Simulated assay, not measured.
Amino acid sequence: MQNHLKHELHDVISGKSQVRFGATIQAVASYLSDGTQASPKIEDTKQIREQETKRLENFISEKDLWINDIDFSQYISEGAEQRVFLKDANHVLKLNDAIYYSFWKDYFNNLLLHNFFFPDTAYQLIGFTKENTILYAVVQQSYVAITQNTDLEQVKAFLGSNGFINTRNNDYFNPYLGIILEDLHDENVLTRNKILYFIDTVFYITKEFWAENKDYS
């Protein structure tokens, strides 16, 4: 079962398998995969990120993915990595500069993993915007109205039943899948009618993700 899941995730990340709202995300990630490290002599992460951002902006222009009509008056909140705006009664827009990730491709992989595991709150990548020279991905997500405070022990139990071990505070790791899932505090996991809704996740893929698991039952 776990082995099947891992191969399924491989197919999603590589673009071989579909996931909710995944087409645009996979297209962008695939484009970056073709030349994220265009110059093999460049080892500095910052330089690689700058190269990647330039390539990404070229792709955005080619595919007409620039968004210039965001209503900033509908501001709701913000965290370290993103700002949130109300789009309508059922959706929010989130502007994310991928600051939690060394490379943009890792951010897009995060979106794909989120959409795979939590389709009820799947991110729809609708475009990009730029403000003060900073590039932001613009994603749309369903608005979740909470009915009660989130019990973090319930979050821990739910993730534990799905193979994610609590490593510290609100961070988790699935040793079989080789996936880290962080920052699941009660503002990133909401509760509506006793059901958990994961609205903001931070997934990281480790080298174990691509390794074959031979010893399993």
Rank of each mutant, 00 (worst) to 15 (best):
D88V: 08
S102V: 04
Q74W: 05
I165F: 08
G15D: 09
A157Q: 15
N110Q: 12
F173H: 06
S217Y: 07
F59A: 11
N162I: 08
I76C: 14
F103G: 03
L95Y: 03
L196I: 05
F173C: 02
L196P: 01
E182C: 12
L113Y: 04
F103C: 04
E8F: 04
R83F: 07
S14K: 10
F103E: 10
A23V: 06
R20C: 03
R20G: 01
Y31I: 04
T206L: 12
I134S: 14
T201E: 00
S161T: 07
L112K: 02
A38H: 05
F164C: 07
V155P: 00
A157H: 07
Y172L: 13
I70V: 12
L5Q: 13
N193V: 05
D97Y: 10
V189F: 01
E153Q: 14
V189G: 00
H91W: 10
Y107K: 05
Y197D: 02
Y176Q: 09
I13L: 15
I179T: 05
A38Y: 06
T45A: 14
N110H: 13
K54R: 13
I146P: 00
S161Q: 15
N110A: 06
F158G: 02
K194H: 12
L159E: 04
E8K: 12
S14A: 07
L56D: 02
I205Y: 00
V92D: 01
A122I: 01
S61R: 13
I199T: 14
I165N: 13
W104E: 07
V92N: 04
R20W: 01
N174S: 06
L177R: 01
E50Q: 15
A27Y: 01
D44W: 06
K16R: 13
E212W: 03
K105Y: 00
I126H: 09
L112E: 02
Y107T: 00
D171T: 14
Y31R: 06
S161D: 14
I134Q: 15
G127D: 10
I48N: 07
Y123N: 15
P119N: 09
Y143G: 01
D69I: 03
A29Y: 08
A29D: 08
K94Y: 07
D69W: 07
I67R: 12
T129M: 11
K63P: 02
T121D: 04
N115R: 05
Y31P: 00
T150C: 13
H114K: 07
A80D: 08
T147E: 14
L86M: 10
T147I: 11
I25E: 00
T147S: 15
I25G: 00
Q154G: 03
I99E: 11
I165H: 08
V155F: 02
I70S: 06
F158W: 10
E208F: 04
S73P: 06
L9P: 07
S17Y: 05
N174I: 04
L32M: 06
F85W: 05
I179W: 04
V92G: 01
P175T: 10
F103N: 04
K6T: 01
I76L: 15
T36C: 12
N109R: 13
N193S: 14
L111H: 03
Q74T: 12
Y100H: 10
Y204P: 04
A23K: 14
I67Q: 11
E208L: 10
F117R: 03
K6G: 01
F173I: 08
L32D: 03
F59V: 05
D171H: 13
L125Y: 08
Y100I: 03
V189N: 02
